[in-house]
């Protein structure tokens, strides 16, 4: 269970990104955080695995306060938390395999990884991850030779290497087209349902939110302005959605959903 209590983040330049945020994520949930760019979604996700240090507040994960961890303990905690990024954040010039293996760094001895040596079991694991995401034939290509959707799958494979219990996904489909967006979210859904990983994901589009979330948080200017269950969000109209956003919100697919089965992506 992830418990965020009174989380506040003020950047050095005085920008208040998060204001006293509290929420709980039960194990096995697919929590989606919605909100405009600049509403604090990315900051919130990065506070959880401490890529950004929170100014105040606690983040309790499995009984450990992540907000207070330092050094070795922090790294050990990060191993349990996979992260997927909007821009994939792959090392573009490295091979897909190297990128995936780097997900195992937290478990590997420093000296051996300096020599690019990984355990045979880790390599086996990487192959399994690539196979699971259907990109095993791309393993020795350079990451930047892959299409956007493939790159995001590499990103997911990298996160899988950590054997995570929690996956943070920061707008994982914002750089992808609608079909790929569904494809990527379907992978996340499988991780959620089959592997029982908890997923916290930020998204922009109402139809994606309605389709994949088990619970929704709405953020605006660093504050939670909406909390909704699966049922509530499914009943939500575009108008209500726009109210949370405070501005123009979009649907991503506009009638595409009917065709999803053609791509083998339907439920």
């Amino acid at each position: 269970m992830l418990e965020v209590k009174n989380l506040t983040k003020v950047y050095d330049d005085g920008t208040v990104a998060l204001k006293n945020i509290s929420f709980t994520v039960e194990d096995g949930e697919f929590l989606i955080i919605i909100g405009l760019s600049g509403s604090g979604k990315s900051t919130l996700l990065r506070c959880v695995n401490r890529l950004i240090d929170p100014t105040e507040g606690d983040i309790i994960w499995d009984g450990v306060n992540l907000a207070k961890l330092e050094g070795e303990e922090l790294r050990k905690a990060r191993r349990q938390i996979g992260m997927i990024f909007q821009h994939f954040n792959l090392v573009r010039r490295s091979s897909v395999m190297t990128n995936v293996l780097s997900g195992r760094l937290g478990y590997s001895p420093t000296f051996q990884t300096m020599m690019h040596q990984f355990k045979e079991s880790d390599r086996e694991k990487a192959w399994q991850a690539l196979e699971r995401l259907g990109i095993e034939d791309q393993a020795f290509k350079r990451a930047d030779e892959l299409s956007g959707g493939q790159q995001q799958r590499v990103g997911i494979a990298r996160a899988l290497m950590q054997d995570p219990e929690l996956i943070l996904a920061d707008e994982p489909v914002a750089s992808l087209d609608p079909v790929l967006a569904h494809s990527i979210l379907t992978y996340l859904e499988r991780l959620n349902q089959e592997d029982e990983m908890t997923i916290v994901c930020s998204l922009h589009y109402l139809d994606l939110v309605q389709r994949y979330s088990t619970r929704v948080l709405g953020l605006r200017e660093g504050e939670i302005v909406y909390r909704g269950t699966r049922e509530e969000i499914r009943a939500m109209t575009d108008e209500e959605f726009q109210e949370i956003y405070g501005e123009q919100a979009q649907r991503v697919t506009g009638g595409l959903e009917g065709n999803l089965d053609e791509f083998g992506l339907g439920e």
Binding site: N49, L51, R75, K76, A77, R78, R79, I81, G82, M83, F85, H87, F88, N89, L90, V91, R92, R93, S94, T98, S102, G103, R104, L105, G106, Y107, S108, T110, T113, M114, G155, R158, M161, Q162
Partner: peptide, 29 residues
């Protein structure tokens, strides 16, 4: 690109590993 560095850090890599896997591949070429 700070992205890969962030991503490598997020896997629980230590400082040396982050440099080796996040920074070096970007500046070596």
């Amino acid at each position: 690109d700070p992205g890969p560095i962030e991503a490598v850090q997020a896997t629980g890599a230590n400082w040396a590993q982050t440099i080796m896997y996040g920074v070096v591949p970007q500046i070596i070429p």
